[in-house]
Amino acid sequence: MSKQPRKQRKALYNAPAHARGKHLSATLSKDLRADLGKRSLPLRSGDKVRVLRGDFKGHEGEVLSVDYTSYKVTIEEVTLSKPDGTAVFLPVDPSNLMIIDADTKDDRRIKNRGDN
């Protein structure tokens, strides 16, 4: 595997769907780390997250959608207002998020993540 930035960008751009989920993972809170025995999990809609960096630092909300093409996540309370007054969601990079409450209804989500 190359360290060259151009090849890293190309690998992200051309990544298959099953590999994109690994890049869309966020760290777990200390309580969840102790409960699940993992450091991070891939983000899913329904997870409750906290923003760690940027203008919306400290905001908490539920993940509404996960965009696998642009590697971004939309969160409930993270919105900007357009000049006409309408609110639009601001996509957030998953590396700037922490999962506070994971949606653990799916047993395979936790069991199959042995690589973290």
Rank of each mutant, 00 (worst) to 15 (best):
M1Y: 07
Q4M: 08
Q4E: 12
P5E: 07
P5M: 11
P5Q: 12
K7S: 07
K7A: 08
R9P: 01
L12G: 09
Y13G: 03
A15K: 14
A15H: 07
P16S: 10
A17C: 12
A17R: 13
A19Q: 15
K22E: 10
L24Q: 10
S25T: 06
T27V: 04
S29E: 03
D31M: 02
L32M: 12
D35V: 09
G37K: 05
R39T: 07
R44E: 10
G46A: 03
V49M: 02
R53W: 01
G54E: 01
D55A: 06
F56W: 10
K57R: 10
V63S: 01
V63Q: 04
S65I: 01
D67A: 05
D67V: 04
Y71G: 08
K72L: 12
T74F: 04
E76C: 05
E76G: 04
V78T: 00
V78N: 00
T79P: 00
T79W: 01
T79A: 00
L80Q: 10
A87L: 14
P91H: 12
P91A: 05
N96W: 14
D101P: 03
D101L: 10
D107K: 15
R109A: 06
R113G: 00
R113H: 04
G114Y: 13
D115H: 10
N116G: 04
